[in-house]
């Protein structure tokens, strides 16, 4: 299953500007020195309201995953889709599709590197690669 197209809004514009350059931004609270996921409106740990965008390392580890089986319809074969929750080194979780991962390679704690793919008519979206 291909990544679905996502378009930006005012909140996400900086995130997608960076993703087009291969950089991952997260929400950061300077007063609390805490990180939150890209959709957070207030801090995930302290509820501080001074979040700003800050570049993250783009690395983390696998927390959990599912595999949606591929299908064959009219001789068109859709491959399995691996979707995982990744805990970034800064703390926030991201839900990412893993374009190249095989089931046998999935394990809790496996190191993950965040990359980016641009679906048709979409912003560049983060995806996961097993390191």
């Amino acid at each position: 299953m291909a990544l679905a197209a996502v378009i930006r809004d005012d909140h996400s514009a900086p995130f997608f500007e960076a993703s087009a350059e291969g950089r991952l931004l997260l929400r950061y609270s300077p007063s609390q020195d805490t990180w939150s996921d890209p959709a957070a409106l207030v801090c995930a740990t302290t509820q501080a309201d001074d979040l700003q965008w800050r570049e993250a390392a783009g690395t983390g580890h696998l927390v959990s995953w599912t595999i949606k089986p591929g299908r064959r319809r009219d001789d068109v074969v859709t491959p399995d889709t691996v979707i995982g929750i990744v805990e970034l080194d800064e703390g926030p979780w991201l839900t990412l599709q893993f374009p190249d991962a095989a089931q046998a390679d999935l394990a809790v704690g496996r190191a993950v590197r965040v990359g980016f793919i641009q679906p048709e008519d979409s912003e560049h979206l983060p995806v996961g690669y097993l390191a």
Binding site: A4, A5, V6, I83, T95, L96, S122, P126
Partner: peptide, 22 residues
Amino acid sequence: MVGTASLPFAAGLKAAPERYAV
């Protein structure tokens, strides 16, 4: 599919089965 809140859905985590599967 607008903004960063859509990222889990865009990745394929849409309906209840895959969300409970995780």
